[in-house]
C-alpha cells in the first residue's frame, strides 16, 4: 500500500525544491477545463502534459495550469502555451499531440504550427 510514510519521504525531498520552482518557472501551459473542454477530451490532454513535463525533467521551468471556457468551444481541447510575452494557442488537442508539443515546442523551442489555431481555422 502507498503508505503515509512514503508521502512523508516525498515531502522531505520536495520541500526545498518547491520554493525554488515557483520563482523560476518560465513557461506556462494552460488547459481549458470547462464543460466544452471536458466533453471534447481535455482530461487526458491535461494528464499528458502533467506527466510528460515531469518525465522530461522540465517541471522546474514549466507549470501546467487549468482555466475555464475561453469562448472557442468548437476548437476544444484548447491549450495555450505562454512563454514570456509570447502565446501560442493549440487546438483540437489529444494526448498524443501533447507529447509532440512537449518534445518540439517546450523542449525544442519550435512551435508545432499544424496544431495551432491559425493553421486549423484556415
Amino acid at each position: 500500500m502507498k503508505s503515509l510514510e512514503e508521502l512523508k519521504a516525498i515531502k522531505a525531498k520536495m520541500q526545498d525544491k518547491v520554493t525554488l520552482r515557483t520563482s523560476s518557472a518560465q513557461t506556462r501551459v494552460v488547459v481549458g477545463m470547462a464543460t466544452c473542454g471536458i466533453a471534447a477530451g481535455a482530461r487526458p490532454v491535461l494528464a499528458a502534459f502533467v506527466e510528460g513535463i515531469n518525465e522530461a525533467g522540465l517541471s522546474d521551468n514549466v507549470i501546467v495550469t487549468q482555466t475555464g471556457c475561453i469562448g472557442i468551444c468548437q476548437y476544444e481541447p484548447v491549450v495555450e502555451v505562454f512563454n514570456g510575452e509570447e502565446k501560442v494557442t493549440y487546438v483540437k488537442m489529444t494526448a498524443e499531440r501533447a507529447k509532440e508539443v512537449i518534445e518540439k515546442h517546450i523542449k525544442g523551442g519550435k512551435v508545432v504550427t499544424e496544431y495551432t489555431i491559425g493553421d486549423t481555422a484556415k
Binding site: L7, I10, K13, M14, V18, V50, N54
Partner: peptide, 13 residues
C-alpha cells in the same frame, strides 16, 4: 503531512 509542499507536485499526484 505535506505542510507547504503543494498537492499538485507531480510526485504527490
Amino acid at each position: 503531512i505535506l505542510e507547504d509542499v503543494p498537492l499538485n507536485e507531480p510526485e504527490v499526484l
